[in-house]
């Protein structure tokens, strides 16, 4: 007899994104808690049923302090689902997990109208439609368009998404984008796409004369580039650790 150890069906693991409320405590913490109480008093139940992430990147706090803070928040019905910006030494096994790679979203408005009249001590489950509305919000790929040439000495830094330049990027100028870079002109300076770790980012330009190009931290100097692409319309992308190039049109 063979013993079936596991079910034939494998466990399916999926990714899903939700919009979390991020709380950023500021020192002194006692004052901050008072302000939080004040906010909770004005819009009661704001934190109910909302996933809350605690951002402690700019907070000087040890593990004991952090444990106390989470307890204090728990007493106020603020349940922390994750901690952002903490060092591993600050986080114990009983704490919510460390989170990273969060993308910024629109600020959450705390409005008084929103406050449902509920007793905080035995709060009911919030109505089904409210969390659903929040979950529908997806991170939108952002982009900016620059309608003039980027001059020598100027730098355009846009970690949130794509950068489109209608004009040339001069020698000694740089464009740094979290997403892809599109240049409708000559790229003579530097272009760095996928700067926050995005291997899917690409660089497009109508004329390639770049000093340096980089995608997801992998870079190539002008000297290392294939001279066949010089002065031509080119797109560049990443395959593994190698920057690939192809002429356009």
């Amino acid at each position: 007899m063979t013993k079936v150890l596991t079910d034939a069906r494998s466990i399916r693991i999926k990714g899903r994104s939700f919009l979390a409320v991020v709380l950023t405590p500021e020192a002194p913490l006692d004052d901050w808690i008072v302000q939080l109480d004040d906010l909770a008093a004005r819009s009661a139940g704001f934190f109910l049923g909302r996933p809350v992430v605690l951002d402690v990147a700019d907070l000087d706090i040890d593990r004991k302090g952090l444990t106390e803070l989470i307890e204090q928040l728990g007493e106020r019905n603020v349940r922390i689902m994750g901690i952002e910006g903490a060092r591993p030494s600050q986080v114990g096994p009983n704490m919510p997990p460390l989170m990273k790679g969060g993308r910024p979203a629109a600020d959450v408005d705390v409005t008084e109208e929103e406050a449902p009249k509920v007793d905080l001590r035995n709060a009911p489950e919030p109505e089904a439609d409210r969390p659903k509305a929040a979950a529908e919000t997806r991170a939108v790929t952002q982009s900016i368009v620059i309608n003039e040439p980027i001059r020598s000495g100027q730098s355009v830094i846009f970690p949130e998404g794509d950068v489109t330049v209608i004009g040339s990027v001069a020698s000694g100028a740089e464009v740094i984008a979290g997403g892809s870079i599109h240049i409708y002109g000559t790229l003579r300076g530097r272009a760095m796409a996928g700067s926050l770790g995005n291997a899917q980012a690409r660089i497009f330009c109508t004329k390639l004369e770049a000093e340096l190009i980089a995608i997801d931290g992998i870079y190539k100097m002008a000297e290392d580039m294939d001279q066949d692409f010089n002065g031509r319309p080119v797109q560049l992308w990443l395959e593994g650790d190698i920057i690939m190039a192809e002429t356009l049109i």
Binding site: E148, R151, S152, G172, A173
Partner: peptide, 12 residues
């Protein structure tokens, strides 16, 4: 030419 480009950026 490159220095002039820098100056044009400052003018703007």
């Amino acid at each position: 030419v490159r220095d002039s480009d820098r100056i044009i950026g400052l003018l703007d």
